[in-house]
Design a protein around this nucleic acid. Structure first.
Lengths: 339, 339
DNA sequence: CAAAAGTGCTTAAACGCATTAGCATGATTA
DNA sequence: TAATCATGCTAATGCGTTTAAGCACTTTTG
């Protein structure tokens, strides 16, 4: 176990001061008018002995950690996992690393995690805010900490955010079902007042109004265990007999499909908010409102990097269009044969 | 933006020394014989003003960061994402946080990431090693840094690892297909000499021998773009006409299913190594070798925590059983009707 | 030709905390 | 009564960096 080399070792060995070595290492040789000869000598020696600065000491001194905190609802959800992946790649290429945690959308956990990151002095935050975190977010903004929210925002707070056009996406999905001739179009969503859910609900309602249909809304409690949830869903299907269902998230869709499969019920038409790699492999293939994952990740990391560079004083609020990907599950034919 | 409170502020305000406050904060009040009265007074004041120590300074001084580095092949792969999720939860409850990065199984990236974590002084490592990282891992072990490998190991290195029984899992899957009467059972795997792939190949081969069948092996290059890969796969299907396919990973299975779907070919029987939430929703439902995700995560984090506590001097190598989950995709009936 | 500016470095003070060694007091012991 | 000990705390140092300020020259400038 060879002992760690310090900057002072370099300085001593070369007969110069620590400061000089530090300047050279941080690319300030020219600025600080250090001779080319010495610069080269130091650089060569550093490479030769394989010296690497202690990042902790560096961070303590500079206040920068080159770490971005990613506070995300659930890293095992493909939508979030894919975005995380893209963010990670982009951040990496800019010299930033990602520290992440999943919140399960629980307020206490979210708050705790944000404070944790703050203790660690992360340079910036990318957050999917749960409910009840208004004060925490306000405090970050008050302290001028670089921050971007995504997937949802907090009404009344002037923060950067990147979301998809939930209202239009939900409207399009519902309108599509209506145009295909479905009359009893249900929405399956969460008990949640978060903006993305609220907007999807509004989009659904607007389409229902446009086509003068009756709304059928089933709200699901994510805390329920799977059995309860499935029974609950079966009851809803039995009572309301929808001929089409719009699921407000991908995991609701997956749960719903599972429940439908179990009971071998007449298969309604189905649309899911959020696409999934496997939806195109289902029988029938599943129609989905696909969010522009690359664009979201790009906007997120660019907005954050801008802030980190000191640019971007203005807050930036980005709403990206979602695209309705029409597949078999919402076509009248399939539905007819399935019935 | 209120100024950050320091430990020295607490000390000054209370008229005691920084040392005393530090002792109390670190639970050494009793050990250092500090009076109960003062202890309480300090604790109360700390709570009142909401003081939080600077974790960076703490880490610099103690050499501990309370961070675990998770170097994983691909966080957007559900198998890894789910394990990451479980590890995160367990680590969190023990006061550790997770810093993660995806390697894409590229050696240079893996090495770079490990060194990065080392620079950041993470306390421990959980790694899915790519090929060509032997020296890096040896160096970690040589420096007595707590470390657990998973999903695969590095032959000849005495490191902790947690893997599933790939050989038996692959054998069972193949044997299952053979017992169902399939004669032309193909293996689709990667160009890779990593242990998990090697063992799955060996398991397949052993079953092929047992049932005296002919092997049909298709190796896939993950660097190929999707179109090339699909064409390649179609060619293999055309030439070899397998009646059953065992995919060595979940993403190979997904790619394969996609390719099969595109061409509307006669559907072979299918088994995938690694299960997937959605496999039970497919038509037909997909038979899979399911790895014990919870057990893997538990073993991983426990082994690491033990090392971090200074216990567990002995290296620990855990092989957990995989379970064959039989569904429709490998039943002879379905296959017959699909043909 | 004196003052200003440039040159190529170094000194020393942070950054915020943990920790070792030690010091002053009063109580106990011999 | 002096030596010893327990008590309850503090001074001082170290962790590995960055960086503002400075130093002793030489060169340029007005």
């Amino acid at each position: 176990m060879k002992k760690k080399i310090l900057i002072s070792d370099i300085a001593r060995d070369l007969g110069v001061s620590v400061t000089t070595v530090s300047f050279i290492l941080n690319g300030k040789a020219k600025e600080k008018r250090i001779s080319d000869g010495l610069t080269k000598r130091v650089l060569d020696y550093v490479k030769k002995v394989g010296y690497k600065p202690n990042e902790l000491a560096k961070s303590l001194r500079t206040g920068k950690t080159k770490i971005i905190g990613l506070v995300i609802e659930d890293i095992s959800n493909p939508f979030f996992a894919n975005i995380a992946r893209l963010i990670e790649a982009k951040a990496y290429s800019k010299g930033y690393r990602i520290l992440y945690c999943s919140t399960d959308n629980q307020p206490e956990k979210t708050i705790e995690l944000i404070e944790l990151f703050r203790d660690r002095h992360v340079d910036g935050y990318i957050i999917t805010p749960s409910e009840g975190v208004r004060e925490t977010i306000e405090s970050l903004i008050g302290n001028h900490l670089p921050l971007v929210l995504f997937d949802r925002y907090i009404p009344g707070i002037d923060a950067n955010y990147v979301i998809s056009d939930n209202l239009k996406g939900a409207y399009d999905a519902t309108a599509h079902l209506a145009q295909r001739g479905y009359k009893r179009i249900a929405l399956v969503t969460l008990y949640s007042s978060q903006t993305q859910m609220r907007d999807r609900m509004n989009g659904y309602m607007r389409a229902i109004d446009t086509y003068q249909l009756q709304p059928y809304v089933k709200k699901v409690n994510m805390e329920d265990d799977e059995q309860t949830a499935i029974q609950d869903f079966h009851a809803f299907m039995r009572d309301q007999q929808p001929d089409a269902i719009f699921f407000a998230t991908n995991y609701l869709a997956i749960r719903g499909l599972k429940a439908l499969k179990q009971r071998d019920m007449p298969m309604p038409a189905v649309v899911s908010y959020d696409d999934h790699t496997l939806f195109k492999l289902f029988t029938p293939t599943i129609t989905a409102v696909s969010q522009p994952i690359e664009a979201i990740a790009d906007e997120l990391i660019n907005t954050l990097l801008n802030q980190l560079d000191g640019k971007g004083k203005e807050t930036k609020q980005v709403v990206l269009p979602s695209e309705l990907v029409i597949r078999e599950s919402s076509s009248a034919q399939i539905s007819a044969t399935a019935n």
